[in-house]
Design a protein around this nucleic acid. Structure first.
Length: 408
DNA sequence: ATAAAAATAT
DNA sequence: AATATTTTTA
């Protein structure tokens, strides 16, 4: 029991590891900042839930463990709910104009939790929901340190590019791979030797080009690059993924992943070698409810409007999460919330309300799937590498913003 | 075939 | 950093 603490405390910064829940609650009670309280509480809950998922496989043998953990989670969640943005309501108004909704949501949440608590024993069989997510999440977590490959703009010559393109086409047809040689130099400048190879350079076409043409061109190139990548090495992670998930089943609801400790499946090898060839596109990040919850939480702490992707990411404390990803998510989030905001004033309980609920109160889904299985798993090696690599790569920083209609 | 989500380009 | 566009997935 004691050693567990040490392990857990390794990666999370000023993480606190109280001896008992009571201790923990006391510690939290000494914190003045409500947001901080929530953060700590939620963080703990999250870890508990993660462990819950781990022992889920043994729930029959360890019913009491489950019981205790459930209880702890409930208590902590409850406590967290108490400190739900007490004084910073004004800040939230932007995203949550109606406090009623908020309360309602909490009620729903509690109800759901209670239900869960009640049912968790009786519906044991139902718990085994393998779900496609597991695999997916696992993959994404592994691939996180496959730093995205950005095409260098080294090759600005249109003609040359075209030429290369043609040549490549030809080669694809003939099944040759000579293209590698000609393209490598242009991407060679990437600082990291292990950086993946980008088969094609970026368009950089003169402005004269019509938009359509341009778009078509880019598209064409992308297609080619994909094909090239496929033929070269990584045989379509995405496609494989798609097919598998599609074939598995349709329902991807709440998944209590019964993943065992260390993720070292056979297919990992492909990802562990960021080496030479990589497909150009990044693995799709799945925003699990848990992730989203963190996201929203961070957003709240930052005051919603002036939140920048970078800050959000920092506050989220999620390993391997990219600014880009946060940016993208933020964009989507803002778009949604924009839509909803004006509609709420109308009493109608229509689609907008539904949407709003979905987006605002996803807290209630706080358990279930979690994308970040690596926090306690085996983050040490690969993670650090990933971090440093990412840090040194310049173009990984981007951010998002929703509609330009803000009142900053 | 379409819409929504995420990635990437501007 | 914000937004537009493209690509992928459900």
């Amino acid at each position: 029991m004691g050693s567990v603490h040490a392990e857990l405390s390794l990666d999370l910064k000023p993480t606190f590891l109280p001896k008992t829940i009571t201790d923990f609650l006391y510690e939290v009670s000494t914190i003045g900042n409500a947001a901080e309280k929530r953060l700590r509480l939620d963080d703990y809950v999250e870890r508990l839930e993660e462990e819950m998922r781990k022992i889920d496989a043994f729930k029959r043998e360890l019913p009491l463990c489950m019981l205790i953990m459930n209880d702890a989670i409930l208590v902590l969640k409850d406590e967290s709910a108490k400190w739900r943005i007490p004084n910073s309501q004004s800040i939230l108004e932007e995203f949550i104009p109606l406090k009623k909704e908020c309360d309602q949501k909490e009620e729903i949440k509690k109800e759901k939790e209670n239900r869960d608590k009640k049912n968790w024993m009786s519906s044991v069989q139902l718990w085994n929901t393998p779900s496609v997510y597991e695999k997916k999440n696992w993959m994404s977590s592994v691939q996180l340190w496959n730093t995205a490959i950005y095409p260098t703009t080294a090759n600005n010559n249109f003609e040359q590019k075209q030429h290369l393109k043609v040549e490549n086409k030809k080669m694809k047809e003939e099944g040759k791979s000579a293209a590698e040689d000609s393209y490598q130099p242009s991407i060679n400048r990437s600082t990291n030797g292990c950086r993946a190879f980008m088969p094609f350079t970026y368009p950089a076409v003169p402005v004269a080009m019509i938009k359509e043409e341009k778009a078509a061109k880019i598209k064409e190139e992308k297609e080619e690059s994909v094909i090239n990548g496929l033929s070269l090495s990584t045989p379509g992670i995405k496609k494989t993924n798609t097919r598998e998930s599609a074939g598995a089943s349709g329902s991807i609801t709440s998944s209590n992943s019964a993943v065992s400790s260390s993720p070292s499946p056979p297919s990992a090898q492909a990802n562990l070698h960021p080496g030479p060839q990589q497909s150009s596109r990044k693995q799709r990040r799945c925003w699990s409810p848990e992730l989203h919850r963190r996201f929203v939480n961070a957003l709240q702490q930052l005051g919603g409007s002036q939140a920048t992707p970078k800050q959000i990411r920092e506050l989220m404390h999620v390993d391997g999460l990219t600014n880009d990803e946060v940016k993208s998510h933020l964009q989507k989030y803002r778009l949604h919330t924009r839509r909803i905001h004006p509609a709420i004033s109308t009493p109608a309980n229509q689609s907008s309300a539904v949407l709003g609920d979905l987006w605002m109160s996803q807290d209630q889904y706080s358990d279930s799937t979690k994308t970040t299985g690596f926090q306690s798993a085996s983050p040490e090696g690969p993670l650090q590498l990933a971090r440093s690599a990412r840090g040194s790569s310049p173009p990984e920083d981007k951010s998002i913003r929703g509609r330009s209609f803000t009142t900053t």
